[in-house]
């Protein structure tokens, strides 16, 4: 990952900063406005999860490429309580807080790649990627 940007997420105000940042990054890759909205919405969900469940954490954004595609990678990292049951958290409609419970499964649906690692008491890291469509 090159040119990574780290955004500290400590309150709801940082959520807005994170999604503006990621929109700008999407523009440098000439993502369509529809794709920009999708990625920004995903970042909004991930950042809100950090605020809601861990209190604070980081959103790291950057560009990535494989053999013939360019894309954007977003890592949401916190040292919060962790998710005891990831399978349950990935089910539509499940939420222990104020959202609609669609943050994680929704993000997985709209991004091209999605990975989550969580340890109880240690924290959670969600990594998502979106490739530039030809």
């Amino acid at each position: 990952m090159s040119e990574e940007t780290r955004i500290l997420i400590r309150s709801e105000y940082d959520i807005v900063t994170a999604r503006q940042q990621v929109r700008e990054l999407c523009m440098t890759l000439h993502f369509s406005s529809g794709e920009q909205t999708l990625v920004a919405t995903c970042v909004s969900e991930l950042a809100r999860n950090i605020v809601e469940y861990a209190g604070s954490g980081e959103i790291i954004t950057g560009l990535t490429r494989n053999t013939d595609e360019e894309g954007i990678v977003i890592i949401a990292e916190d040292k919060g309580p962790g998710i005891p049951n990831i399978e349950l958290a990935m089910k539509d409609g499940y939420s222990t807080s104020k959202g609609l419970g669609l943050g994680l499964p929704g993000s997985k649906r709209i991004m091209d790649e999605f990975a989550i690692v969580s340890k109880t008491g240690k924290g959670t890291t969600v990594t998502v990627k979106k490739w530039k469509k030809p």
Binding site: R23, T37, A40, T41, S44, R48, K98, G99, L100
Partner: peptide
């Protein structure tokens, strides 16, 4: 609004 996430929708 340039996006509506689950919080805004709720």
């Amino acid at each position: 609004l340039d996006l509506i996430d689950s919080f805004a929708a709720r």
